[in-house]
């Protein structure tokens, strides 16, 4: 069907005169629909396979204990997992700790800020939001270099505090987006009711608004935490021998020593973390929260 015909039917709509409905389509169009549907199904399946394949390969290789995916699986074993050295576990534990503290700091900063911005209806609300989202807009590599330039004189590079601060600033952007949206969903009348009965506005915030926000905040914390676990490019510059997140550890190993079985096993563990996270989110809030740009963040 050509564009001209479409415009014609558009005109028909203006004159409230229907030209052709789906029931009296000529046969070739219905065949076209069927072919289109088959092509679409094939495309969806192919895309799924292509997207899943690399991840599946990592998991399969981790159970074969080699440096490649063997064509004949003659030995399924956990040897690669057993071979994970202590410095990998240390790096993972380091990442979990700093990701946890960064998440807490970001939420503690973001909740009051979102409350002030939304309830105060401040004139500078857009400016403040844009400023807090700045770390998200600037490429990670630039922010990483900038933080390195600041942290070296302060002695914060190559330290737990430095990594946590870097994660906090990037988490804050995400946490504020979440909390602003959550805060907008809580009716102001509830707070006003508490205030008319003699509560101060801060009491209203802590006793009325926070309990209502709690489930949403838990989800937000989960998102921020998992994003912190996998942040790489921002941390590459400020990481060092005394402060190595797991992603940086895996990166320097593949660059220096090539693909190692224990590194594949650790990658597989990160895949499991990702799967666990998605299962949890899909079960608690539903899959639609995974779509959309609110959760997008650069790796």
């Amino acid at each position: 069907m050509t564009g001209g015909e479409f415009q014609e039917s558009g005109k028909a709509f203006g004159g409230s005169r229907g030209t052709r409905t789906r029931a009296n389509l000529p046969g070739r169009f219905r065949t076209g629909i069927r072919i289109g549907r088959i092509a679409l199904t094939a495309y969806v399946l192919l895309m799924l396979a292509l997207l899943a394949l690399p991840i599946v390969l990592v998991v399969v290789a981790s159970f074969q204990g080699g440096m490649e995916v063997a064509s004949r699986p003659d030995g399924w074993s956990l040897s690669a997992y057993e071979a994970i050295p202590t410095n990998y576990w240390d790096a993972l534990w380091f990442t979990i700790r700093s990701a946890f503290w960064a998440t807490i700091c970001a939420l503690v900063l973001a909740v009051p800020a979102a409350w002030g911005l939304v309830r105060g209806n401040l004139r500078e609300r857009r400016f403040v939001s844009a400023l807090v989202l700045l770390p998200d807009a600037v490429p990670s590599i630039t922010l990483g270099i900038a933080l390195l330039a600041l942290f070296v004189p302060l002695g914060l590079s190559n330290s737990f505090a430095g990594i946590t601060v870097a994660l906090t600033v990037i988490s804050l952007a995400m946490a504020l987006r979440f909390t602003e949206a959550l805060m907008g969903g809580v009716p102001e009348e509830l707070e006003q009711a508490a205030v008319t009965m003699g509560a101060s506005r801060v009491t209203a915030l802590t006793t009325v608004v926070l309990p209502l926000l709690a489930p949403g905040l838990a989800i937000a914390a989960l998102f921020v935490f998992v994003h912190n676990l996998v942040t790489f490019e921002l941390l590459l510059f400020i990481a060092g021998p005394r402060a190595t997140p797991i992603s940086v550890q895996l990166f320097s190993d593949i660059v220096d020593r090539g693909v190692l079985p224990q590194a594949i096993a650790m990658s597989a563990i990160l895949v499991y973390v990702g799967i666990a996270f998605h299962t949890l989110v899909a079960m608690t809030v539903g899959a639609r929260y995974l779509a959309g740009s609110a959760m997008a963040r650069k790796g």
Partner: peptide, 12 residues
Amino acid sequence: PMISIPRMLPFV
């Protein structure tokens, strides 16, 4: 959820 798994993995 299946497709988004790679989003929660480091580029590494």
